[in-house]
Nucleic acid binder design. Structure first.
Lengths: 117, 117
DNA sequence: CTAACGTGCAACCACATGGTTGTAGATGAA
DNA sequence: TTCATCTACAACCATGTGGTTGCACGTTAG
């Protein structure tokens, strides 16, 4: 039941679980930038920023395009849509639950013979 | 610039970056359940499931209500909305970018005197 | 050509995470 | 009371992560 597609979802959420990486995503959505240009805006080492970009790349959230000696980082919005869709599915579940609760309120009380947990 | 609210966001995404925890969230949205009832449905130890629930609780995605000897797990949909809103903001950025690109296409080409990165 | 720049990668460290087992305390049932 | 159940928590281990420094290589600028 824990299938292959799940690890892709794991990577997307894990990649977004870091403020620096979320900021990088925001920046490259606004305007694509080289790794070193990104690195200059944070007060950590170049290698650290490079690793963050690599994490985003493995998650499929960004791609790198080699342009001369620069590695230009682009966003990949399709992958972001995966995360959005999953959260939306949670919301759908929630709404279904609300629906059921209203059904219960409108229906006669059922016999209570379920175990306590 | 990396503020306090960011660590809450970190926790929400980190909590969702695990298939077991996403499944727990789905389950308790469908119907709240005790920790042991949840644990029975996975093939890991009770303590492991207990830790997963603790992670979700620290992220604010679920709450535990003590009922007799049971710890009943409820969803907290407000926190999920935080994550949804953030992803929506990315989408808004993306749309703004599309808008700018259309503006550029409609406008005369600007002088190109920016540095290469 | 030489020097500076941008990148990639490896090694290292401290710390968090996901799993285990074990122990102990509360609560409910017989 | 006694026993089984549910929960909590600690200790431990392997692995991943976020940061560092250092080095090597390709590319651009002088």
């Amino acid at each position: 039941m824990v299938v292959d597609e799940d690890v892709a979802t794991d990577r997307v959420f894990a990649a977004l679980a870091d403020a620096t990486r979320r900021d990088i995503v925001r920046r490259v959505i606004a305007q694509e930038a080289s790794v070193s240009a990104l690195a200059r805006t944070y007060q950590m080492s170049f290698a650290a920023v490079q690793k963050h970009v690599a994490v985003l790349e493995r998650a499929g959230l960004v791609t790198k395009e080699r342009r001369g000696r620069l590695a230009v980082v682009h966003p990949d919005l399709g992958t972001l849509a995966v995360a959005t869709r999953l959260l939306d599915s949670f919301e759908a579940l929630w709404r279904a639950r609300i629906g059921r609760m209203e059904d219960l309120l409108a229906a006669p009380p059922p016999p209570r013979n379920q175990p306590a947990d």
